[in-house]
């Protein structure tokens, strides 16, 4: 795995927030490299900096110090539009609260990113059908998010994250709102997709189920990497 293509590289990433004028060190000099096809969990207690690291990796937030490369591109050198286009084309997001667009149907939610990318209609439809079949949501195309269970909504989020074939999927506590059975099934599905497609998954979590399935555990504590464990 370590010899394969690098998807993410951080170098001395530091993030300092100001909380009512008091500086808070969320990250302290994080050096991390993630290769293509990894199924990595960033773990640690609340406030350890997991989500901040995920935000910085995805370009949603900028580090106070240090550098981040995504697919060998330095994100600090990208303009807002470039970053936005980069996220659209190379990163899939899965959030704890599903974050589907409530006024769009399952099909439209999944189709949305491809529409931004300018994928032709027929191709979009073909890929939507395929990915919904993949995540077990055939027949749910025309339902709205409010007509789905939590597990089904998270499957839609997974389908949306994967449909554009991104090189990286970032999942922030994806199982936190799900019961263990649904969460377990979804993780198995993601792991299977990772194995089959070679897509890179990076989780931020303290869910034991994810840690069990992850190939690599990056343990954060007080804003720095305490342990970096490879399970295979």
């Amino acid at each position: 795995m370590k010899n394969s293509e690098i998807v993410i590289k951080t170098e001395n990433v530091t993030k300092i927030y100001s909380d009512n004028g008091i500086p808070v060190h969320a990250l302290r000099g994080v050096d991390l490299t993630i290769h293509k096809g990894e199924f990595t969990a960033i773990v640690g207690p609340s406030g350890s900096g997991k989500t901040t690291l995920l935000n910085i990796i995805s370009g949603l937030d900028m580090p106070t110090e240090g550098r981040v490369w995504l697919n060998n591109k330095l994100i600090s050198e990208m303009s807002g539009k470039e970053l936005s286009d980069f996220r659209r084309d190379h990163i899939g997001f899965i959030f704890q609260a599903y974050n589907l667009i409530p006024v769009l149907t399952v099909e439209e939610n999944v189709e949305y990113i491809m529409l931004l990318q300018g994928v032709p209609k027929e191709e979009r439809h073909k890929r939507v059908v395929e990915i919904l079949k993949e995540v077990g949501l055939e027949g749910f195309e025309h339902r709205f998010p409010t007509q789905l269970s939590g597990g089904q909504q998270q499957r839609v989020a997974i389908a949306r994250a994967m449909v554009a074939n991104p090189s990286l999927i970032l999942a922030d506590e994806p199982t936190a709102n799900l019961d263990s059975q649904t969460g377990s099934a979804l993780l198995d599905k993601m792991r299977e997709l990772n194995e089959r497609t070679g897509m890179t998954f990076v989780f931020s979590t303290h869910d034991q189920m994810i840690m069990e399935r992850a190939k690599r555990l990056v343990v954060l504590k007080d804003g720095h990497i305490e342990k970096d464990l490879w399970k295979e």
Partner: peptide, 16 residues
């Protein structure tokens, strides 16, 4: 705000 945040996160441009 949350929805606009999501739309931006997944690649929607500010002008959109």
């Amino acid at each position: 705000q949350r929805e606009y945040g999501l739309l931006k996160a997944i690649g929607t441009q500010p002008n959109q």
